[in-house]
Each structure stands twice: as C-alpha cells, then as structure tokens.
Simulated assay, not measured.
Amino acid sequence: MTPADDIISVEPESDAELAFEGALRPQSLAEFVGQQKVRGQLQLLLQAASMQGRTADHILFAGPPGLGKTTLAMIVAHESGRPLRMSSGPAIQHAGDLAAVLSSLVPGEVLFIDEIHRMARSAEEMLYLAMEDFRIDIMVGKGAGATSIPLDLAPFTLVGATTRSGMLPNPLRDRFGFTAHLEFYESSELEQVLVRAAHMLQLDIERPALAEIAGRSRGTPRIANRLLRRVRDYAIVTGKGAGIDAVNAALELYDVDELGLDRLDRAVMNIVLNRFDGGPVGLNTLAVSVGEEAETIEAVVEPFLVRIGLLIRTPRGRVATREAWKHFGLTKHEAGTHNQPLFGDEL
C-alpha cells in the first residue's frame, strides 16, 4: 500500500471524529446542560437585545477549561441570528491584527476571542475604543509626520473567554456588559451530558456505568466526553460491552482512578506525601520533581486537588490533607530532610 493510500484511508475516520465533536455541542440554550443561572441571565440579555432591535452587549465567559465557554459563544451567535467570527488571544499579537479583524466585521456580527487575556497590550488598548464607540484610530506614518485616522466600525458583539480572568486589565473587564462565571458541573448534570453523547455515539451503556464515568470526570463535560469515547473504544476492541466492569477496566487502563486523578495528579501527590512527608513543599520544587512546568502544576493540577480536598496551599508551600493520606493508603511517618520548602520557593 502506498503512503497516499494510507492517508486516504484515515481521512474519513478523522472527518467523522471532527463531525462528532461538532455534533456534541448544543445548538441552543435549551439544549445546553448545566450552568442554569448563567443560561437564565444570557437568555434575558439576548431576548432584550432582540426586542429592541440592537446588538447584544459584550459578553465575557470566565472559568476553567472544558466547561462550555466556546459552546456558549456559538449559541449566542445562533440564538441572535448573527454570523460568528472566531479568533484567539495568542493570534492577536499586534494592534494591526485586531484592526484587520474589526474592520472586516459586518453589522451585528459576533466576534469570539478565546483566551482573551493573552492578547497583546497594544491590541487591548485598541479594543477599549472599539467596544465603547465602535471606532478605532489607525496611525499612518511615523515620527513627527504620523497622523491618526478614525475608522468607524459596524456594531458588533464581542464575546470573550478566559481561564484567567484576574489577568484581564480592569479597563477591559469593565467594558463587558455581562460577565458569566462558569462553575464545575455536578455528577447528575454530567450524566445528562453523557446520555446525550452516548446516544450520538450509538453506544449501548448502562446508567450505573454513566454515573461512574461522571464521577471521575472532575466536574468537566469535556473530560466526561473524552472518557466516554475511551470506554467506547474499549468496548469495541474487547467485545465486552459497556457495563460497569468495562468502565472500570477502561479507566484503569487510562490511569484514571475513582476520584478522577490522572497520572500527573498522582505524581504530584506522591512527591508531596512520600518525598516531603506531606509537605510543605514549594511550587518550583514540586514542578522540578515531577518534570513539569510550574505554571502547569499551578493552573492544571492544583485547582482540582485543592477542590477535592487532597491539597492545601499555605504561605510555606503545598501540604497534603488527612484525606490525601487516606486516599493513597499511607500513614504519615517521620519527616525526612527534604520536608521544608527551599529558600525563595515558598509560594
């Protein structure tokens, strides 16, 4: 078989997976599961704009990854009957990048900027005027001969998404008419998400099995859908169906335990419990010990460990809780020589 034949044989499967990802996203607020308060607030905002014949106020979605910020942005455009333009903060690194996007918007268009806190500062400053007055100033020329030319923009709705709302400058945050803080999902809500996904996957799975997947999904629909696909793969390959035993076997194979801890979570806790006798241990020391960036530990691993009560952040460093010792079946022993945070590494 030629290399070309290999590529052709893979493409349909890839397209099917992409189509499934798109189909999983709800198309309306009525289909969207969870975030009940945010849905009610958003419904009111969009209906008011429609009744007054104007574009909706600018919207900011803040919250951890995987909770539906991008999906809600798509729903805003769909329910408003407006076109959607999508971009991201890392892609807008110059004011000119943003000016090119803004100047090409059609009246009423919804502009979605993911990870908006990662935009360049010069682009943020241009966005202030665009959000308030639907106008930008373009500098022409250099030095003493430079002139500012105002450019009027079509009215638009900016929808921003951020996982780090604290990194947004106050002037930008204050220009959003509505800020929605997305919360982690309850297991019962994740079960509803999984029921819909299993139906679309044509996967015959028992309700207790869905509950087990939901309980290991860290309160995040994206993770729940990913684990469901892994269970589907296991069921297809082994031919054992998708019962509770298959779910347990599949998730054990993929290193997801009963609390939803993955390999990196357990590596972090293993360092805190075994090498540092429960802590305290500094962030940088912890990151070096597990071979990851400190930012990854702080932004990805720690929030979940703190939320489920296995880890505590203290001024001296990270400390394991009594529940952590119990979960890993360990007993606190005499502290070793490395149980204190290194100098300058307390946070």
Rank of each mutant, 00 (worst) to 15 (best):
M1K: 08
E11Q: 09
D15V: 14
D15L: 15
A16N: 10
F20W: 15
E21F: 13
E21M: 14
G22N: 15
L24K: 06
R25M: 09
S28Y: 10
L29S: 02
L29W: 02
V33E: 03
R39D: 04
R39H: 08
G40M: 04
L42K: 01
S50W: 09
T55K: 07
L60C: 04
A62P: 02
G66R: 03
K69N: 05
M74S: 15
V76Q: 01
H78D: 11
R85A: 14
R85D: 05
R85H: 14
G89A: 09
G96D: 12
A99I: 13
A99E: 12
L105F: 08
D114G: 06
I116M: 07
L127E: 01
D133S: 14
D133L: 10
I138Q: 06
P150T: 08
A154V: 04
P155F: 10
F156Y: 06
T157R: 01
A161G: 12
T162N: 06
T162D: 04
T163Y: 07
P169A: 05
R173I: 09
D174Y: 13
R175N: 08
F176M: 06
G177T: 08
H181L: 07
Y185M: 04
L190R: 04
E191G: 05
L194Q: 01
R196M: 13
H199P: 04
H199N: 15
M200H: 15
E212N: 14
G215N: 09
R218D: 10
G219L: 04
P221H: 04
R222S: 08
A224H: 01
D233I: 03
Y234N: 04
I244Y: 03
A249V: 05
Y254F: 12
Y254N: 03
V268A: 13
N270E: 12
L273F: 09
D277P: 00
A287C: 07
V290M: 06
E293I: 07
A294R: 11
P315L: 10
A320R: 04
T321P: 00
G329H: 03
K332I: 11
N339F: 14
Q340W: 15
L342W: 14
